[in-house]
Nucleic acid binder design. Sequence first.
DNA 1: GGAAAGATGTGACATTTCTCACAAAATAGT
DNA 2: ACTATTTTGTGAGAAATGTCACATCTTTCC
Lengths: 225, 225
Amino acid sequence: MKNECIDCDCVLRSSVQMKDCQLELLGGSHAVVKFKRGDTIIRQGVFSTNVIFLRKGMAKVHLSGPSREQIVKLVKAPTYLGLPTTFGDKINQYSVTAVTESEVCFIDIEVFKKLLAENNDFSAFILMELCKSELEAYRRCASRTQKQLRGNLADVLLEFSEHLFESDRFLLPLSQSDIGNWVDAGRESINRALSEFIADGIIRMEGKQVTILDKKLLQLISQNG
Amino acid sequence: MKNECIDCDCVLRSSVQMKDCQLELLGGSHAVVKFKRGDTIIRQGVFSTNVIFLRKGMAKVHLSGPSREQIVKLVKAPTYLGLPTTFGDKINQYSVTAVTESEVCFIDIEVFKKLLAENNDFSAFILMELCKSELEAYRRCASRTQKQLRGNLADVLLEFSEHLFESDRFLLPLSQSDIGNWVDAGRESINRALSEFIADGIIRMEGKQVTILDKKLLQLISQNG
DNA sequence: GGAAAGATGTGACATTTCTCACAAAATAGT
DNA sequence: ACTATTTTGTGAGAAATGTCACATCTTTCC
């Protein structure tokens, strides 16, 4: 098998120096798999022995809450998936589902641990990533719970436009009830708020195709809402 | 200065083997400080170069949200404080405030990084801690946003009783408005719900002294809503 | 190509919680 | 010991969302 890791983003992205032998190790022990939209990449409640690297695509991280499914965040390639759930616990504590066509590598956890132990740069990098995502989790949670519907919906739209697709025009990869599960609202409320945004000329929607017409206003709603 | 680290919980707790020279390093570079209830240990928005180890006491982790202060969690000694905020960003992204008399060590971040690099056990331990707290953050956030007031208040009381004080009788270290900022509710609502719990014979309160009378029922309320 | 499943649009109404207003109690500071 | 400040208790009405009930649309899959 050709060692795909050598030109894989997962290494480039880490901006970490890896010795050839370490790349060998990685290359010899992983499997690249494709997922379709809606496919489960990591399933909550299942025993896990792999860290996953998302090479291409976009995925939602979600877990089952007391009364419904809670979407925690959306992530796009390139990124690691399931670090906390694989290290923190043998059993997956959350699910990850592809929301667009995706491509991932499964990396055996023992190999991953070996790399962490051998390569201090790498382990410092991972540590930093974990710190950042914990901070992000705190911020997002505070923001979600304190803002009301319109503010949260504006955040979601801005998140898509600015971080995930980096464009004012994109195909919404979530259903309205998914968005509800993300921002803690009912499907109907999301629907009504979207209609308002359209009526106010803030966005345009043709099917799943969203165009942001007035980003300034959206940012204002995000702040004040 | 005597090297207090040798018999400090921070080392014991890590269950990590430290070489004598590493302990020296730690012992020679930290400062032990006492804090009173209400004192700020870490202040959001301020430049930081220290990791902090909470030796004794209890503290709240909180950050300023869009419309009010959000309490993220309560922690008790022994534990590290501010790892994410010190590693993830030079500027503190959250505050930590003592809620009981506390004692902490300030550990210079360069020393901490050196230890991480030198001691793989230690760095694996820290990595694991970070993973666990990220998982915990996700779970708590989902729980808080999906449950309603009584359920969340029950959770808070159980958290005090089962994890923080490990007793059915304890001195509530937060004001009612703090509790509100923790579970995303107004101060008045917390007050009313507490009164209900008292009226229902679930708890007793004499001033700040709380006694849990019916833990089973409290757990039921926590589950159902 | 047609049935079944899933996603979206929309109304009416019930609920929960917030907000404002004020009073009483407790705590801290001098 | 006596203010000043913070915390707690309580009512009444407002506001935001949730819930339920249907009527379309769309997509998926035999």
